[in-house]
Design a protein around this nucleic acid. Structure first.
Lengths: 338, 338
DNA sequence: GGGAATATATGAAACGTTACATAAAAAGAA
DNA sequence: TTCTTTTTATGTAACGTTTCATATATTCCC
């Protein structure tokens, strides 16, 4: 009497086909098997609707074809996009993705890393904020946007160049007096270089500039107060603003309009990330576009590449400017320039 | 000579602590063990930095504490939000989430369902578009926004009530002549009820209404053409528009502004989903908010609930209106009403 | 056609865990 | 103390694969 309720195993298939266990294994794994045997096994598989148990495989091979992705959440468009492209890149390599949302919480980040190790995932890609994250030596790890030490590769956009580019573009579109707005995080991560790049760009182009950086605890309303302070007779003293993210730019534009400022007529705004809402080129604002797809591919390659001569500690990928309606760039018929 | 490179197992811990294998298992699983034994085992675990191999556990228990989530992608804010909240709800139940992005492709959806079965995930939550998706009887499955037959529960917002609510609100804010805009999909899914609900609401409130529904292949530009047609002497013949999603509303608002229409002064727009970009209440537009968090919790409960008397075929959860700046609702000091 | 050489199928062992039947130890009763 | 009862630890089998040494079948050559 054979058990009824549970899923068929290789043993069942072998019995059904009248062959040995190992033969079934070979068929399943595409190894050379005599034609008549292969046929019998395939028939039996179809008849029993057999499906391989990948946890038994994982146990045997200590390889699970699963990679954990640690990101704060999937609600911020940039993270969401990252998750999507990493999933895609993993898929091409026949890997699955375990999504771990950390809420930027150090404890949760550590918990997930530990869990990922327990699960024996084949590797971790992490965009994390915990400055003391402990990663086991033998766990393949690739970081995004934050260097985790010399032995762990970090992939990021060329944030410095992005900052420079923002300044250049504002200058090109006629700005003379610009501001940089940033929110949160005192962490020493790659996106912080946007500020330095912007500063550098402003100096190179002779732009007057000012920085307003909110601390972690600060209320978002401070931006509104700050902008109000810089309105003189109804005119904003800035003619250009570079926001550290598109999300921020989006909010700032709302505030500016509420304050009676026209965007881009009175003040031009450039964000960072390249967030699109809907459709191919429908950017939320004029922006410095991060090459999300390339970042994703690079992470996956670095993580899974077996025979890499040396794991590069930092990989910077090129950014590009894109028009999104919040700059005075003259739009030609053939569209946006990069 | 003990093997050096691979991770320590329970056997190693047992040897180190001088106890039996089963005792280690009990300690790891929190079952009653004598104090002195427990202490020795815990010390050994710490010393060897032992971590349980969950694939061996999965093999033994045929339970993996993993659930697959099938969604088209993570880039659309609504899906992203769903992924986030489902991940959260699963986490509370100690489950992990395998994220499967299908790109709304039938073949990929089927592939993922099959894969999920192979992986022996404990269940699947799916927001899919394949009308012929084959789901094995013994795979726990919960659908979102689309009924998959009487044996599979479907969770959705109360889309019909949402449509009604949109009509009511537009009427309340002074509209007399409204339009419903929708894009794509001829599939018979729950969100389609938004149209019927809106129609019903318009009739109840005596609103003039018109529907413009794009087919799958149609270019998005048709909306622009459509709206242009309805401009008479610079005035739009509609004073209110209900868009099937916030994403569409966002695009439509851009078009309206390009056409010289002011939102909400000339024409009021209501979307659907409750997308926020940045911050708690910063809705992209005035909108019918889907209870994403409740949908997520409900899916997880229905999926993991062992002793449910009967699996309900359809669960509708309540929606609410939220102000997002694109309606002429008079905003009181104490904020938005639901 | 017989024997050596090659190709192909077989089945036991192992992966790391849990569960259960058994053995040992501790506690209580006489 | 001795026997019974209860508690607690032990060690083996099983989960479903893959791998590898062994056994069997096939091919080739003289």
């Amino acid at each position: 009497m054979k058990k009824e309720s549970s899923a068929p195993t290789m043993k069942d298939v072998a019995r059904e086909a009248g062959v040995a266990l190992g033969t079934v294994s070979k068929v399943v794994n595409g190894l050379p098997v005599g034609d008549s045997y292969r046929q019998r096994v395939e028939d039996a598989i179809k008849k029993l609707n057999y499906q391989v148990n990948s946890y038994a495989q994982g146990l045997k091979a200590s390889k699970t074809y699963t990679v954990a992705l640690l990101i704060p959440n999937t609600q911020m468009p940039f993270f969401a996009s990252l998750a999507y492209h990493i999933n895609l890149a993993l898929l091409r390599r026949k890997y699955r993705m375990l999504l771990c949302c950390t809420d930027s919480d150090s404890a949760q980040e550590q918990e997930y890393v530990t869990m990922a190790q327990q699960n024996k995932v084949d590797g971790i890609i992490g965009l994390t904020y915990n400055p003391n994250l402990i990663i086991e030596e033998n766990t393949p790890y690739v970081a995004i946007d934050r260097s985790m030490g010399p032995k762990i590769p970090c992939v990021a956009s060329d944030n410095f160049a992005g900052g420079q580019l923002a300044a250049e573009k504002l200058a090109e579109f006629g700005c003379r007096n610009v501001a940089f707005l940033r929110i949160g995080s005192s962490l020493n991560n790659e996106p912080n270089k946007r500020k330095a790049g912007f500063e550098n760009g402003c100096l190179a182009r002779g732009l007057q500039y000012e920085m307003k950086i909110l601390n972690d605890g600060d209320s978002f309303d401070e931006f509104e107060a700050y902008l109000k302070e810089h309105i003189d007779n109804g005119n904003l003293t800035f003619d250009g603003i570079f926001c550290v993210t598109d999300g921020l730019a989006y909010s700032i534009i709302k505030i500016l309009r509420r304050l009676g400022q026209r965007v881009p007529e009175d003040v031009q705004v450039i964000g960072f990330d390249g967030i699109r809402y809907f459709g191919e080129k429908d950017y939320v604002c004029s922006t410095i576009v991060q090459p999300v797809s390339e970042i994703a591919k690079m992470c996956v390659e670095l993580l899974l590449q077996e025979n890499m001569p040396i794991k590069p500690p930092l990989v910077c990928l090129p950014v590009a400017y894109a028009y999104g309606g919040t700059t005075r760039e003259t739009q030609t018929a053939n569209g946006q320039k990069g």
